[in-house]
C-alpha cells in the first residue's frame, strides 16, 4: 500500500519505466471532441479535443484564467448548475457522450467524481457519514456493506490508520490535509470511473500536499484521474499526461515527460520554463 513513488525528482527528466509501459495499450476512458464552454457570450473554453486515458493521471496546467478548471468542470456536467453556462461539442465517457439527450447528469456525476480546491467535508456529519454519504444516496442501507465500503475508501485515501479509532468524530475535526483526503475518500466510495481533482492541494501545507501526491500514484490503479494544478512540479511529479491551456485553448497535449522536456509549442515552453505565467 505505502510503496514509494517510482520517481521523486522534481522534473521528470529521468522517467521511470512504469510510465513508459503505460504508454503502450492505452485506452481512453474519457475523451472530448470539440468541447467549448460559454459563460453567457463569454467563451470559457474553446474547441478542446483531448483524451483522458484509463488508469493514468492527466494534469491540466496553464496560467490563471486559462480555462483549465472550466474544462474540468465540463467533464462531469458541473456547469449544469450555472444557468448562464452553455456547452458545445462532446465529452465521451467510455464512448458515450455525457451531454447526449437523455443522459442523466446525476448518474454521470456518480461515475465521474470530483475533489475540490478547498476541502469541503459536510460539517454536520461524522467522518464515517461523510464517507458513506454517496452510498447512502444510492440507497445502500446495510450496515456491513457501508462499513466495508467506508474502510476501503479511507484505506485507499490513506486516511484509515489516522481515523479508524474516531470514525464518529465530526469531519471538521480533522486537519486540512486530512479533510482533503476525507473528501477523496468520500468521492471514492461510490466507485467512480474517473476522479476529477481541481487543484486539490492548493489550500494545503507542503506535507499534506506530499501525502496527496503520493496517494494519486496508488489511486490510478483503480480510477482514472484528471487533475488541475497551478504547480508545474506537481504536474511533473504525479501525471502521465499533461494538457497545457492558454486563454481557453488547449495549446498542447502529450505524455508529461515529453511535454516537459521537449514541448512543441513556444508558449508551452515559456510557461514550463517559468518565463511566463
Amino acid at each position: 500500500m505505502n510503496e514509494q513513488k517510482p520517481y521523486s525528482v522534481s522534473l521528470p527528466t529521468g522517467q521511470s519505466e512504469t510510465k513508459l509501459t503505460l504508454a503502450e495499450g492505452l485506452r481512453p476512458r474519457m475523451e472530448t471532441r470539440g468541447l467549448s464552454v460559454y459563460y453567457g457570450k463569454k467563451m470559457g473554453v474553446r474547441n478542446v479535443s483531448m483524451p483522458i486515458y484509463a488508469n493514468t493521471v492527466t494534469a491540466l496546467i496553464g496560467p490563471s484564467g486559462c480555462g483549465k478548471t472550466t474544462f474540468l468542470r465540463a467533464l462531469n456536467r458541473m456547469h449544469d448548475l450555472t444557468p448562464i453556462a452553455r456547452i458545445e461539442g462532446e465529452a465521451l465517457l467510455d464512448g458515450q457522450n455525457i451531454y447526449a439527450p437523455g443522459v442523466d447528469a446525476v448518474e454521470i456525476r456518480r461515475k465521474i467524481g470530483m475533489v475540490f480546491q478547498k476541502p469541503n467535508p459536510f460539517p454536520t456529519l461524522t467522518i464515517y457519514d461523510n464517507v458513506a454519504a454517496g452510498l447512502k444516496l444510492m440507497g445502500v442501507r446495510r450496515r456491513d456493506v457501508l462499513d466495508e465500503a467506508v474502510e476501503r475508501s479511507l484505506t485507499q485515501a490513506v486516511l484509515w490508520d489516522e481515523v479508524k479509532d474516531r470514525l464518529r468524530a465530526p469531519g471538521m475535526s480533522l486537519s486540512g490535509g486530512q479533510q482533503q483526503r476525507l473528501c477523496i475518500a468520500r468521492a471514492l466510495t461510490v466507485q467512480p470511473e474517473v476522479l476529477l481533482m481541481d487543484e486539490p492541494t492548493s489550500a494545503l501545507d507542503p506535507i499534506s500536499t506530499q501525502s496527496i501526491e503520493d496517494l494519486l500514484t496508488e489511486l490510478k490503479k483503480h480510477v482514472t484521474i484528471a487533475i488541475v494544478t497551478h504547480n508545474m512540479q506537481q504536474a511533473g511529479r504525479v501525471s502521465d499526461f499533461t494538457g497545457y491551456f492558454l486563454l481557453g485553448d488547449l495549446i498542447e497535449f502529450g505524455p508529461t515527460n515529453q511535454l516537459f522536456t521537449n514541448p512543441k509549442d513556444a508558449h508551452t515552453e515559456a510557461y514550463i520554463t517559468g518565463r511566463f505565467g
Binding site: 500500500m1 448518474e107 444510492m138 440507497g139 445502500v140 484505506t155 485507499q156
Partner: peptide, 22 residues
C-alpha cells in the same frame, strides 16, 4: 488492499435513480 468489489453488487437491484428522480 481489498480488491474493489463492483458497485453494482452493493446498490439495490436495478438502481434507485428513478425513485430518486420522482
Amino acid at each position: 488492499m481489498t480488491p474493489p468489489s463492483s458497485i453494482a453488487s452493493v446498490i439495490p437491484k436495478g438502481g434507485n435513480l428513478r425513485i430518486r428522480r420522482v
